[in-house]
Design a binder for these strands. Structure first.
Lengths: 153, 153
DNA sequence: TATTGTTATACTCTATAACTATA
DNA sequence: TATAGTTATAGAGTATAACAATA
């Protein structure tokens, strides 16, 4: 267990991290991160179609929010809605090839910025930070995708 | 220089970090993170009064955004506006004792959540993540406070 | 009755543009 | 003329509540 002081220090650094994300989003060409990107990214990382509720759970968002983003993404042809085979209330969401292209473009654009800002980072530093961020997310219940197949029906 | 693959991995983990912040904000008692918290936090970390423009620069926000948050914070008595001694256009912002109390409460509330979610973290892990997040922020131009005294007048 | 998802409404955060006051 | 800051307006993200359809 980390000391209270270490936690406080971590909290201080963490507090500004949203600003870093905002800076990244601003540094990227306009249109690279379209509205609803987070939902699209989550879908792109899934190996199988997901229900809306599962997406909301994974992103720790209200389902109404996910639903609204999905409407936008479907409208653009980046996500496909299909009826759930065994549950008439549910829908299955899958990313389309066009959606994958959007994710690719977004990733490339962000990578370019990262490469520019992290020139003096070693491979080791980058990997260590990836690992620690992953653990932090896991601690907050943001499970990695693909999902460990809790088949809901 | 980290490899493209390491950067891509880091980007993947980083992408979901905003969700973690959202989860933290939701896990905390209502009112712990009042609107404009980020501006208040920045002011609380400064050892001297700051101009609005300097705050915007530090947070990488448009000044109009900072101005709007400041109006709210001043209204609550958490921030004090004073005229700049040598520049009639500028204002100097300082946190009040009441503002510090708000920051303390917010910090304590977040710390409680962190302590709960990071039970299995070692001191070393927490410190390493703090350090790496700090470097990441620096890479994106988010300079730590207190400011290295570029006296503007 | 309970659950899945959608829609209506409202609140927060942010940026752009127009404006005022001062330099 | 240029700069510091404010205000008006608009767009994006989110949550709550009411709702429809299905289980």
């Amino acid at each position: 267990m980390a000391t209270r002081e270490a936690c406080r220090q971590l909290l201080t650094e963490f507090e500004g991290i949203v600003g870093v994300y905002r800076s990244l989003a601003k540094a990227v060409p306009v249109g690279s991160l379209p509205p609803g990107s987070s939902v699209l990214f989550a879908l792109s990382r899934s190996t199988e179609p997901l229900r809306a509720g599962r997406l909301a759970e994974l992103l720790d968002l209200d389902m109404s929010v996910v639903s609204r983003h999905l409407a936008h993404l479907v409208e653009h042809g980046w996500v496909e809605r299909r009826p759930h085979p065994s549950d008439g209330r549910a829908v299955l969401l899958g990313i389309t090839p066009q959606g994958r292209a959007v994710v690719e473009r977004a990733t490339d654009a962000c990578l370019a910025v990262f490469a520019e800002r992290l020139v003096d980072w070693s491979d080791d530093d980058a990997e260590r930070l990836s690992e620690l961020l992953g653990r932090l997310k896991a601690g907050f219940g943001h499970r990695p995708l693909p999902v460990p197949a809790v088949v809901s029906h």
